[in-house]
Design a protein around this nucleic acid. Structure first.
Lengths: 150, 150
DNA sequence: CTACATCCTACAGCGACTAGAGGAGCAAGC
DNA sequence: GCTTGCTCCTCTAGTCGCTGTAGGATGTAG
C-alpha cells in the first residue's frame, strides 16, 4: 500500500471520495499527482493528512481552523501556543453550545409535559409556541440561527 | 396598530424584514396583501404567526417541523398527538446532540491538557489530532457533519 | 422640493459537504 | 477482442436557514 487511488484512500482514511476531492479544491490537501489516465494518486503522507482532517472534523473544528492546524503541524519548531489557542477556542465554543442546548432541553421538556393529549385547541405545546410569555426561561434571547447550528 | 408595513411587523415580531420575505416565499406565511404601491401589509394574525415561528426556531425546530406545527395549530379540533410527536422528536434530537458534545468536550479537554507549551513537535494537541489511537473515547464514530451541525 | 427612510425584486454567498449527470478508464471473464 | 461492471473523472446544483448586495421604487418629513 504505497500509492493508492482515491477510492482506497477514502477507505483507509475514512473520508469519502467526494470529500477528498472537495478538500483538494479547498486547499486542505495539496493537488494530488495523477496517473496517465488522469487519476489521483495518494501516498501514506496523504492518508495521514486525511486522517488528521477527519479527526479534527470529528472534534468539531471548522475547515479554517483545520487549515491553520495543518500548517502549524508542518512547522514542528514553532511555539505551540497557537495550537493551544485554537483548541481552547473550540472548547469554549462547545461549552457555549452545550449550555444553550441544556436551556433548550429544559424548555422543551416543560412544554412536552404540558401536553394534555387532547385536541390541538387545548395543547400546551401549541400554546407555549404561540405565546412566549408562557415560557419560564429566556432562551429566546439567543439568535435563532446559532442555536442548533454552528 | 391594525395593519402595518413589513418593517414594523419585523419590530413587533422580532423576525427580520428579509427573513419575513423568506418565510413568505417558503410558504410559512400566506402571501401578504399589498398596498397600491406594492408594499406588504401585516395584521395581528400575521404578527402572531411570526412570533410562533420565531419561538419555534429559538427552540431549534426546523422550518419543515414548524410548517407542520403551524398547519396543526390551524386545526384546533384535531388530536394533538402529532404535535407531541414533533416536540418529542426535537427533544430527542437535542438530547443526542448534548451527549455528542459532552463526549467532544471531554476529548478536547484531555487534548488541551496534553499541551506541553513547548514546540509544535512535542505538542500533545497535534499528536492527538494526527493519531486517533491516542484518544480514549470513540467520538470519531459520529459522522463529522452531524457533530456540530443539525 | 429635496432628503432620507423604507420598501421592492432578484440573485449570490455562507459551511461543509452530498447527489446526480454524463462520460472515460481499467481489470476480469468469455 | 469484447462485454460487463466497477472505479474514476468533471461539472453543476442542491442542502439549511438565512444574510448581504445591487439597483431601483415609494412614502414621508421638513
Amino acid at each position: 500500500m504505497q500509492i493508492v487511488p482515491i477510492g482506497q484512500a477514502a477507505r483507509l482514511s475514512g473520508v469519502k471520495v467526494t470529500t477528498i476531492r472537495f478538500y483538494e479544491e479547498r486547499g486542505l490537501l495539496p493537488k494530488a499527482t495523477r496517473s496517465e489516465g488522469n487519476r489521483r494518486h495518494y501516498g501514506p503522507d496523504d492518508i495521514a493528512r486525511l486522517q488528521f482532517i477527519r479527526h479534527s472534523r470529528n472534534l468539531g473544528f471548522g475547515l479554517e481552523d483545520i487549515t491553520a492546524l495543518l500548517s502549524l503541524s508542518d512547522k514542528p519548531d514553532q511555539d505551540c501556543a497557537a495550537v493551544d489557542a485554537i483548541a481552547k477556542a473550540q472548547m469554549a465554543k462547545v461549552d457555549r453550545r452545550i449550555e444553550q442546548l441544556a436551556t433548550l432541553r429544559a424548555e422543551l421538556a416543560r412544554m412536552v409535559s404540558a401536553c394534555t393529549h387532547g385536541t390541538v385547541a387545548d395543547c400546551g405545546v401549541i400554546a407555549c409556541l404561540a405565546d412566549h410569555g408562557l415560557c419560564q426561561s429566556d432562551h429566546a434571547a439567543a439568535p435563532a440561527q446559532t442555536v442548533m447550528g454552528d
